[in-house]
């Protein structure tokens, strides 16, 4: 049984996406990386549940591997 919600859960998907991109406004690559890291940490703490976090880590990793190395 999956603990991680992967079905649609955002009330306003387009608005969230725009807000996410907007949060990076004016940041260089290093600044964006720092923002992303802070965001992950804040959300991870909010979730708290280790099973959910483990599933999210696994899902994110397989997405990254499927996208393949840039070579």
């Amino acid at each position: 049984m999956s603990a991680l919600i992967t079905s649609p859960h955002l009330a306003a998907p387009d608005a969230f996406y725009a807000a996410l991109i907007d949060a990076h406004r004016g940041l260089d690559a290093a600044g964006s990386a720092a923002l992303n890291a802070s965001l992950v940490l804040l959300l991870a703490n909010h979730v708290g549940d280790a099973a959910v976090l483990d599933e999210a880590l696994a899902a994110a990793r397989s997405a990254a591997l499927a996208a393949g190395p840039a070579s």
């Binding site: 290093a30 720092a34 890291a37 802070s38 940490l41 804040l42």
Partner: peptide, 23 residues
């Protein structure tokens, strides 16, 4: 590099957010 990014993010968050101090 990514380990450093997370490390510094934890330290920056820790100033204002108690949860990050545990990290």
């Amino acid at each position: 590099p990514v380990s450093r990014v997370y490390r510094d993010a934890v330290l920056a968050l820790a100033r204002h957010h108690p949860f990050a101090r545990a990290l």
